[in-house]
Amino acid sequence: MKDLAEILAIARHVGWGAADILQSYYHGTAKDLNLEIAYKQNEPVTIADITASQYILEHLQAALGNEDFAYISEETYTSPLNQENSSQWVWMIDPLDGTRGFIEKTADYAVHIALVKETRPILAVVVIPEAEKLYFAIKGQGTFVETRDHRQPQQLSFTPDTRQIEDFTAVVSRSHRNQKLEYLLQNLPFANHKAVGSVGCKIATIIEQQADVYISIAGKSAPKDWDIAAPELILTEAGGKFTHFDNTPLQYNTDDINQWGGLLASNGQHHEILCRQATMILQQWDNS
């Protein structure tokens, strides 16, 4: 098997290629301009999702083969992971995270490509096409960002932060909201809320220090592995944290593709306090 640096170079190249495909649909230059919007479990799926998924899978498999790796894409996933593969190396792919924002032209959409070893991500690429930025990370080596014009990557790290929770900005979903999440956000003392689509875009706002915290609470549905794995690694390798409310790490490639419960991502400041506060507030909700 190739080493992780070689694999990352392939994933970065594929990430930019997928971004090109998505932008051709987003800006109306694709040969087929009909997005053919359909719905899968109440979530929109377009021809752009499918075309980008096919591109990513074909190019990763051509470069890396199927002997060492399994490949899970949102657009091809059909069954529980423990039935679909037995590999300890699994690619988790969301070819278009933030399809609603893509359709509505908010610019909040991203490409997620993560390599999970056993149950944890060890390599990640997140591309924000409209920002012309690609974030990438290998476990233990930090997070870097590159643009199309500046391929020399710049390492990201958070500057020292002496602010209190009351000064924080929470980045929140444009569409995936429920009453329990609204209650939690109303009772946490954040100064501001910033609405952003796509988990990848939300995490990028934290890395770029435009926001401080992201919270997800599963309702009737939950974020999937491919929504979270790549954004988690680029955040944590930049110095942030991404855990369950009980401060335990997220697990991927298990027998459930869903990330149930409460998830909290932050710039790392006051993370444990925020987890405890979120847990206490939800206990009040449950007892009300």
Rank of each mutant, 00 (worst) to 15 (best):
A229E: 04
N66D: 14
R148F: 07
W89V: 00
Q210V: 12
Q269R: 15
E272M: 10
Q284W: 00
D20L: 04
W91H: 09
G65A: 02
L81R: 01
A62Q: 10
I50D: 12
H112M: 02
T76G: 07
T279W: 00
T51A: 14
Q284L: 02
E272T: 13
L134T: 08
Q269E: 15
A211W: 15
G65R: 03
T236L: 12
K2T: 10
A229R: 04
L4P: 01
I47Q: 09
T78D: 14
G197F: 09
A107V: 04
Q41K: 14
F144L: 12
Q23S: 12
G239C: 06
E6P: 03
I234A: 07
D97N: 08
T78W: 05
Y25S: 09
Y55W: 06
P129C: 08
V172K: 08
G15L: 03
I257D: 15
P80C: 06
A238C: 07
G261S: 08
T51V: 11
P249T: 05
N192W: 06
L134F: 02
Y39M: 13
D3A: 01
T248I: 08
I10P: 00
T119K: 04
G240Y: 01
Q141R: 12
I10Q: 11
T162V: 15
A38W: 09
N42C: 06
Q23H: 07
V145Q: 12
A191R: 15
H112S: 03
D286R: 02
H270T: 07
Q88H: 08
L181Y: 04
V172F: 00
V111R: 05
V127E: 12
F69Y: 09
L22C: 01
I138T: 10
L233W: 05
L233D: 08
Q83Y: 12
